[in-house]
Amino acid sequence: MIAATTKKESRTAARFRLSWRSLVPFWLLLPSLIFLAVLQLYPVIYSLYISLHRLRAGQYMPVGFRNFERLFADTNFYEGLAVSFRFVGISLVLTIGIGMLVAVLLNQRSQFNALYMVLMFVPWVVSDVVAGTIWRWLFQQDYGIIQNMIQPLTGSTSLYAKPDGALLIVILATVWRGLPFTSLLFLGALQNVSTEVIESAALDGANRWKTFFRVTLPIIRPTLIVAVILTTIAGLNSVGVILTLTGNIPATQTVSVYLYEQGWQFGDFGLGAAISVVMFFINLGLTLVYLRFQRQD
């Protein structure tokens, strides 16, 4: 803390300085707080309000919890949740798993690392709409170059005409975009693990695998959990890639696509707001669960 005053100062001066100083963080935070209050907090409260109303011809009619009742009675909502968890679960495992592998490889400090990292980051700058269309194009039935290569495996039909295939391509595109950032996060964590710890483990006779899982992994667990949280939230809220890649079909209708469909396409703003509220708590709940893992020891 810096706010300590020197004893020599007079009492009044100290009090003045203290009160001014204690307001400093407030002044520093004020601009951010104004932004967040007006353009985040107010809209959220407004959404809560909409979720209890029906909007028709510009008028709000209170309907109590009817929107939530409709939501919880809608089987599409549960199906959307199921698709979301499948989608997020698989892409999470792949992103984290491959991301870790890439980080370990980069941590061998090949002389070409700088080049590898630049090339690897290309997908990171590609927008979700563009990425979705490019991937759709790769798997297009007749003209898709990857579809043509895998034709012997899938038969004559495009992979995305099959429900699991459509979800798989969406997952691949998502992992493709999420991988560089995750790898970099892990690489940072790995580089901060002191070599002494690794070497002492090696001296104890542990092989490289054992050292990694018993020594390195526990040390970088905080970073691992951050990556898991970020990947999960990004996946749960992903809309652009899915819609551009497969359109709105049941096989890839995640709960966020369901929100897009109901709350935006169908113009059912009340139900949309209700879905938003539920989704917020899902996001929050998952984050809290993950954070529990971090605190366990």
Binding site: Q141, D142, T157, S158, A161, K162, A166, G247, N248
Partner: peptide
């Protein structure tokens, strides 16, 4: 009927075009 008919989007048209 071609299975591509069951995908999202409009790729099914190509089967008629060719």
């Amino acid at each position: 009927a071609p299975e591509i008919a069951l995908a999202g989007g409009f790729d099914f048209e190509n089967s008629f075009k060719d």
